[in-house]
Design a binder for these strands. Sequence first.
DNA 1: CACCAGGGTGGTT
DNA 2: AACCACCATGGT
Length: 217
Amino acid sequence: MIPCADVYAALLSAHGAQRWWPGDGPFEIMAGALLVQRTTWRSADIAIGRLKGRDLLEPESLSAADSADVETCIRGAGFFRTKAARLGKLARFVVDHGGLAQLEAKPTRELRALLLALDGVGPETADAILLYAFNRPAVVVDAYLRRLAQRLTAAEPAPADPDLRDWVETAIDDPIHLNEFHALVVVHGQRTCRPEPRCGSCEIRTLCRTGTAASAG
DNA sequence: CACCAGGGTGGTT
DNA sequence: AACCACCATGGT
């Protein structure tokens, strides 16, 4: 398989540095990771703004908030009942562990296990939180990366998640570049590496081998 | 109208 | 382990 470093270089050349290091603190990033599930960042960001406007984007206030108030703020981000309940559990989790500083002091392994035990936090969200909120070297394996890998390799069956993780880890090991790589994969996936049959003219198509007669050119 | 958007959970086979 | 329905709104 093509080295991940080559793909990284091609994506960077095609799209430029994304600089996705979100600000406004770890807890907001954790909440954002839950809110953005199966929706757009635009919708999630609006929900974040509404929560912040009511001072609900802090562990203490959110854990004590009325669920209906949270639902009102985040309705536009979809699955609002489910996500409101999960946000409450996330806030409670942080409070019960003595605040963010206590969590930040934990080793990555332990922190990941704690995150995975949370309602609504699976592998992708846990790694996104580790990377973006806690600045740990985590590989985010999402649908865009799977699609990109499948187009790169035309493998049948598609590469498994652990293989994708290893593929990235062997090329990139620091959080800043893992962050940038993930951002580039997402941007590329949104702009051109679209679901079939609307796969666009790909900037890194020289690296792709789709195996189909129409696009093998 | 059909499909997609930075998933995860619980139940079924 | 693989597969499925479900959660729900907003944009194209």
